[in-house]
């Protein structure tokens, strides 16, 4: 069962005016995996997640979730954590639990209540009286208390303190069903690396790498975090074409010597361009 495909994207393309947010994206995720969707800002992570959710429609290509294109049915098997808060702030925590219980057949209210209690959140409190981090925790509790086949978590750890981050990862690890798949989009890789089976690197709307975390570590002797920094480095590359993690520091003394720092070179060419 584990090798069955839960999510497949074929030639997936989405444009916003002149911008191509997803460019012939190909992706297949198997059941029972925790997958990191990694890419710099603006690489298409949120667009992909919204397409899978049916919140956006593709311009070209197809998406299948458990063999079905996004629609009413797929919403019943996909649990989605958006990158923004969407709950009315006058609602109490316990109202939200009831709301979710009404809305989703697979919602386990007892499990949600238990997690709310573990977090020492008072269910009688209104959403607007909660801190940003606590709101995010409540939202995650709701999302993870469903028995979904596919969880889509868009930046679940971006705005919270390290303790809350640990809680979130712990929640994902302990609550997901071994047969379901979790797709977590983030750019805070070092924090999530150890909980992931596989990672997908996306760049300019394309899937440029899809492999298991341990295979990447075996092949490159680098953590996924370090590899990511290299592949998406904004720092102009050294002569051999690779920026090593230590380059910024080791390049400093060279600057004083005869070797111009690559960064300066770029600046020079830019300046020349401007004067012409």
């Amino acid at each position: 069962m584990k090798d069955e495909i839960i999510l497949a994207c074929k030639d997936l393309t989405k444009r916003f005016g002149a911008i191509c947010a997803l460019d012939n994206m190909e992706l297949q995720l198997k059941k029972g995996r925790i997958v990191g969707l990694l890419g710099p800002n603006g690489s298409g992570k949120t667009t992909l997640i919204k397409l899978i959710n049916g919140l956006l429609y593709p311009d070209e290509g197809h998406i299948w979730i458990d063999g079905v294109e996004p629609g009413v049915f797929t919403k019943s098997i996909v649990s989605y954590l958006p990158d923004k808060m969407y709950f009315a702030d006058w609602m109490k925590v316990k109202d939200l639990l009831e709301f979710f219980e009404d809305f989703y057949l697979d919602f386990d209210k007892n499990r949600a209540m238990e997690m709310i209690r573990t977090l020492s959140i008072d269910p009688e409190l209104k959403m607007k009286s909660l801190s940003k981090g606590t709101k995010e925790k409540v939202q995650l509790v709701l999302v993870m208390s469903r028995k979904a086949k596919l969880y889509l978590l868009d930046e679940p750890i971006a705005g919270v303190d390290p303790a809350a981050r640990d809680f979130i990862l712990h929640t994902v690890l302990t609550n997901y069903d071994p047969g379901s798949t979790v797709l977590i989009s983030t750019h805070l890789i070092s924090d999530v690396e150890r909980v992931l089976d596989e990672v997908v690197f996306i760049k300019q709307g394309k899937n440029i790498l899809h492999d298991s975390v341990d295979r990447i570590r075996e092949k490159t002797n680098k953590s996924v975090d370090v590899l990511f920094r290299e592949m998406f480095s904004m720092i102009p590359k050294a002569q051999d074409g690779f920026v090593r993690p230590g380059d910024l520091r080791s390049a400093a003394p060279e600057q004083e010597g005869n070797h111009p720092h690559p960064e300066n070179e770029t600046q020079n060419t830019n300046m020349e361009g401007e004067t012409k």
Partner: peptide, 17 residues
Amino acid sequence: VRELASQAQVNPNTMQR
């Protein structure tokens, strides 16, 4: 597996291996 994975905060499949 689950207990150990949750303790070490790692993916259960990795712990299984």
